Structures are given as C-alpha cells and as structure tokens.
Lab assay of single mutants.
Amino acid sequence: HFTSQQLQELEATFQRNRYPDMSTREEIAVWTNLTEARVRVWFKNRRAKWR
C-alpha cells in the first residue's frame, strides 16, 4: 500500500511522463522512500489502468 503522499508524487510524475526511465524511477524511489522496482510496477499498472 502507498501513502497519499507517495501516490501524489507518483501521479504528478505520471501526468508529466508515462514512461519514466531508470534514473527518473530511481529519483522517484528516493523521494517516495520506495524501491525502484515498486515504482516500476506502479507505473506499469498505472499505464494499464490509464488505457
């Protein structure tokens, strides 16, 4: 589960860029205190939901 702060950060990034690269995902991981893998999976799932 994600905190509302984490989701806000993830959503804001998603609005700007639906396909963040590795370095962007790592930055998000640092800001949100999540692993890069969790961030990558979140984006994958979010893109699926967005379609």
Rank of each mutant, 00 (worst) to 15 (best):
V41Y: 11
Q5T: 11
E27H: 10
D21C: 07
Q6K: 04
M22K: 15
V30K: 15
T35K: 03
R46C: 02
R47F: 05
E36P: 07
T3C: 07
L10W: 04
W31V: 14
T35L: 04
T13E: 15
T35V: 03
W50V: 07
F43Q: 00
D21R: 04
W50G: 06
R38F: 13
S4Y: 13
S23E: 14
H1M: 10
R25E: 03
E9R: 14
F2T: 03
S4D: 12
F43P: 00
K44I: 15
F2Y: 12
A48V: 10
T24G: 05
W42D: 00
R47Y: 06
L34T: 14
R25G: 02
V41N: 13
E36F: 04
S23K: 15
V30Y: 12
N45D: 11
R18P: 12
V39M: 00
M22I: 09
K44T: 09
R51G: 09
Q5I: 10
E26M: 15
Q8T: 10
H1Y: 12
R40I: 05
V41H: 10
R16V: 12
E26C: 11
N33C: 07
T35C: 05
R16G: 07
T13W: 15
V30E: 14
K49N: 08
T24H: 08
W50A: 08
D21E: 04
K44V: 10
E27Q: 14
N17V: 09
L34V: 07
P20F: 03
H1E: 12
R25C: 01
W50L: 10
R47H: 04
F43C: 03
S4E: 14
F14M: 05
Y19V: 04
I28T: 02
H1R: 12
Q6N: 04
R18F: 06
Q8R: 13
E36W: 04
N17A: 06
S4G: 07
T3N: 08
R47E: 03
T35A: 05
K49Y: 09
F14D: 02
F2L: 14
V39P: 00
P20R: 01
V30A: 14
W50D: 14
K44P: 00
I28S: 00
L34F: 02
Y19S: 05
M22P: 06
H1T: 12
R38W: 10
L34A: 08
R38Q: 15
R47M: 04
R51L: 15
R40G: 05
W42A: 00
Q5S: 11
L34C: 05
K44A: 11
A48K: 14
L34K: 04
T3Q: 04
W31R: 15
R51F: 14
Q15A: 11
T13P: 00
Y19R: 05
